[in-house]
């Protein structure tokens, strides 16, 4: 008896809900159109931000130009010395980058002759990197980092605006990402060492002029450096046709580096004349 009563009450509640909803609930059409003014405002707000968006940006500098590095940790100094000793002996110290694996952050931003482009949306800013055909996703929705993020070559980036400065905090890198390290005598080419587990990069982007974008980076890696690395780089805006983004398919590679043997095979024919 009690059960039948409960079922009847549920039925009445459902009927009452249906009647009420017919009067007060918005139609599906209304539900779709209602948020539109808010959405439009979100896109309009992008137009009031500093103009990072027009054209592409070239850094016009070599990768790995971290000129002033803080003292290395003991382990990093030993690893860097060993690396450079092997290099002096003539050992090929190429990595899987020779086979088109991304060098990861921050080097992937700094391909001097291939540009980057900022693409804004209300939820994220996408930074497209022509070199390696990769895109950084800078989340602008106020989220916190995943605990911990799944590791990637570009890391997990969360951004916010501080006045006219875009501040981007990035953590969570795969072990393959390497950092340039110069022990002691500052040789021409740095040792490239694997980063530590706590690597974090904070970037501050701002326009110095309409066509000059400064990025101040602070790189934290307590496995390699005894203090944070400070690094400043300028990007130059290019609105010419030749500066536009191009396709870049590295898997068409004619070279192959065998990491097991340290042998670089190159100029391999894989085209139609093979």
């Amino acid at each position: 008896m009690k059960k039948q009563c409960a079922q009847r009450m549920t039925l009445y509640a459902a009927l009452l809900g249906a009647v009420l909803c017919a009067v007060t609930c918005p139609s599906p059409r209304a539900a779709q159109t209602n948020p539109a003014p808010v959405r439009g405002e979100q896109w309009s707000a992008i137009g009031r931000l500093p103009d990072f968006w027009r054209g592409t940006w070239f850094t016009r500098k070599f990768r790995y130009d971290f000129t002033r590095l803080p003292p290395l940790t003991k382990n990093a100094a030993a690893a860097a010395s060993a690396y450079l000793r092997e290099q002096t002996r003539g050992r090929n110290l190429d990595t899987s980058v020779a086979n088109c694996t991304s060098p990861g952050m921050p080097a992937v931003m700094d391909d001097g002759s291939m540009p980057i482009k900022f693409l804004p949306t209300p939820e994220m800013i996408v930074i497209y990197l022509e070199g390696y055909s990769q895109a950084r996703f800078v989340h602008m929705d106020g989220r916190r980092h995943a605990q911990p993020p799944n590791p990637t070559f570009l890391g997990e980036s969360i951004g916010h605006w501080e006045g006219d400065t875009l501040v981007v905090d990035t953590i969570g890198f795969v072990p393959q990402v390497r950092l340039p390290v110069r022990p002691g005598s500052n040789p021409r080419a740095p040792a490239l060492l694997p980063h530590g587990p706590n690597m974090r990069i904070v970037e501050r982007f701002r326009l110095l002029t309409d066509d000059t974008l400064e990025v101040k980076r602070t790189l934290y890696d307590d496995a390699l450096f005894t203090q944070p690395v400070e690094h400043v780089r300028h990007f130059h805006r290019d609105t010419s046709r030749e500066g536009e983004l191009q396709e870049w398919v590295c898997s068409d590679n004619r070279d192959y580096f065998d990491e097991a043997t340290g042998i670089l095979y190159y100029g391999l024919h894989t085209g139609p004349t093979r």
Partner: peptide, 27 residues
């Protein structure tokens, strides 16, 4: 031949000629 352009670079010396390239140009 194809095989003859497959190169062993272990004997090369010096540092990378171009920091931008995918592989060392020390050869």
């Amino acid at each position: 031949s194809l095989k003859s352009i497959v190169l062993l670079t272990a004997a090369t010396v010096g540092v990378a000629g171009s920091a931008l390239a995918h592989h060392s140009f020390a050869m």
